[in-house]
Computed example of a mutant assay.
Amino acid sequence: MFQLFQYHESDFVVSTEPWDDSKPHCSKFDEEVQLRWDQAMEDGHFRYRLDNIERRVLEGEKHYVVELNEKRAKERRRPQPVKSVQEPFNPNVFNFNKIKPEEILFSIHKHESQSDVNACSLGKDDKVDGKVTEKGERSLVVINVSPLGYGHVLLVPNVEACLPQVLTESAIKLALEAMLLSAHRGFRIGFNSLCALASVNHLHFHAYYLDEELFIEYCKVATFSGICYELKTTPVRGFAVQLYGSNVSRVARVLHSVSSYFTRENIAHNMFISRGTRFGEGRGSKERTVRVIVWPRTSQCGDTTGGLFNAAAVELAGHLPIKESEGFQELVEADVEKSLSEISLSHEEFLTLKQNLKEII
C-alpha cells in the first residue's frame, strides 16, 4: 500500500519569490515529490537518466529555453492513435491503472477541515471494499518514465474512474491546488488534450521543475471577458486567467467552461499552469500569482516524430525539449516563433471562437 499525501487550504503558498539569484524555496509537497522521484530514479524505474541534458536560453524577446533531450524522443511511449478530442476511454489499451506500483509516488487528497489533518501529512492509503475511505476517489502522483526534466511526474485525478483525456472542473481544481502546494518558483503543470499531443487517453496532467523563467509568466495580456484575458504577444493565440483577485473554485469553473466549449467543438487545446507576475505588472515585479494559459490550436492527430521539437503545453509555454542534436546549436528565436505559429488558429477562426466564448463565460 502506498502513501497518502493529505493537505488543507492552509498549506497553500499564495506567492513565490521572484526570479533572482536566490535559491528556490521548497514546501513539504516539493520535498516529498523530489525525494520520492530521486529514489525512483536511483532504483532504476525510469527509461533513462537526465545526467547530460544540454540547455540554452535563446537570445531575443521571448528567452525561449531549449534543452537537448534525445532519449525522450527515442524512448518515450508511442502516443495512442486518436482521431478526435472526444474519443472515449478504452480500457484495453495502456492507461494509468496498468502502471507498476513502483511508479506511484503517492496518492493525494484534500481535507476540507483543518482539524482533520495535521499540515501536509503522510499516511497509509487504506482502502475499504476497493475504495479509498474518503469520497471513493483516488488521485495519484506518478513518475513519467520518460521524463522531459527534473521531477517530471503525472497528476492523475480519480484514476479508477477511467476518465478520458477531457478536463473536468474537479480535475482543474486539483491541478490548481497542486500548484499552490508548491513553493518552488519553477514548478509547472501542463495539460494536452487529444489531438494536441496527449499520448495517453486517460485524464492526467504533467508536472515538473525547471529553474528558468519563461516568457509566458510575464507576457502582456488584454481584457477579454470577466476574469478571462487574451494573450497579445505570443505566437499561438490563446487566453489567460490569474488567481489574483479571484479564487480556485471560480478559476476552475471558468477554465472548465472554456475547455468544455473546445471539447464540444472538437478543438484541440493545451493548458499551462505556473507562477508569474500579476497581469499588468512588469517582468521584474515581486507581485506574483498563479497564471493559467489556455491555447486552442489546430489538431495534430497523426505522427509526431518529425521536426526538431513538438508543440504541446510546455513548448507553447517557452520550454522546448529538442529531439536531436543536429540543429540544436543553430536554433534561434525566429525559428521557434515560426514553427509554433503554424499550429495557431487563424485570425478569423480565433475571432469567431472569442465571440462564442463571450456568451458562456
Rank of each mutant, 00 (worst) to 15 (best):
V236L: 03
R237Y: 08
R237H: 08
G238P: 04
A240E: 10
A240K: 06
V241T: 11
L243Q: 03
L243F: 00
S246C: 10
S246R: 02
S246Q: 08
V248I: 13
R250G: 00
A252C: 06
L255T: 02
H256D: 06
H256W: 14
S257C: 06
S257Q: 07
V258L: 15
V258I: 15
V258W: 01
Y261V: 07
T263Q: 10
R264Y: 03
R264Q: 08
E265W: 08
N266W: 10
I267D: 06
I267V: 13
I267Y: 08
I267A: 09
I267N: 07
H269A: 03
H269L: 03
H269W: 11
N270G: 03
M271T: 11
I273G: 05
S274H: 01
S274N: 02
R278M: 15
F279H: 12
G280W: 04
E281N: 04
E281I: 05
G282K: 09
G282N: 13
G284T: 06
G284L: 05
S285D: 06
S285R: 00
K286H: 10
R288I: 13
T289C: 08
T289A: 03
V290I: 10
I293P: 00
I293R: 00
I293W: 00
W295G: 00
P296V: 03
R297T: 05
S299M: 10
Q300G: 06
C301R: 12
G302H: 10
D303H: 09
T304I: 12
T304S: 15
T304L: 08
T305E: 15
L308G: 10
F309T: 01
A311Y: 14
A312Q: 09
V314R: 00
V314L: 12
L316S: 13
G318S: 08
P321A: 13
P321Q: 14
I322R: 10
I322W: 15
K323S: 08
E324W: 15
S325N: 15
S325K: 15
E326Y: 13
E326C: 14
E326M: 14
